[in-house]
Amino acid sequence: MPVGSSGSVIHLRDAVVAPAGFPALAGATLDVGAGELVALRGANGAGKTTLLRLCAGLAPLARGAASVLGVDLAGNRATVRRSVGFVGHRNGLYGELTARENIAFVATLVGATHDEVEVVLDGFGLVGRLADTRASALSAGQRRRTALASLAIRRARLWLLDEPHAALDVDSRQQLDRVFREATASGVTVVYTTHERYTDSQRMPRTITLDAGRVVHDHA
């Protein structure tokens, strides 16, 4: 794969992130292009979450070079947050609001229309009674989908997802994978951490393995 900073959505060169002095990311080098689907693998503490947080503009770069969507992370990392969507272990939903209200709230903030809200809700399978159920009453998979729907309504160009498959049943996982494929088909770049083993080789995304804060394996 051609590697260059110009065309890539994520561009890391020996990137070090060291919150509280510990280099959780200890010199990672990586390029991800637009529309790619990338799975990050590795043991606990390998630096997967830190890599996502760095790319989301949430963790400061201590050393090396890093740019996301053309924005240099060593400079103003606040800028990058606007076009990047990060969903961690928490979904960032308001439990008292329904799925539709949660999405509609974000839609108001970014200036999206009601029709767009309905389209997104449809696209993420949040239809009928589901859309009008309070987020606190939704299942884990439905909440995760609502969180992703809010990334979609924000038109985030890069999705950074920390273990999106965790605590989901088989159906929900497949639904999630379908959402990923549709998103990447429309030009969105999706990077997620996972413990999944892919058996079906045709469906396997590009898989990057981290160990001790470095990229040790990159299987396209």
Binding site: V16, A18, A20, G21, F22, P23, A26, G27, A43, A62, R63, D211, A212, G213, R214, V216
Partner: peptide, 19 residues
């Protein structure tokens, strides 16, 4: 308790080899 970033990075590198 905090060592310099250089030695911390060196320590992290050996960690990978050990595993």
């Amino acid at each position: 308790g905090t060592v310099g970033l250089d030695s911390a990075l060196a320590a992290r590198a050996t960690e990978a080899v050990l595993r």
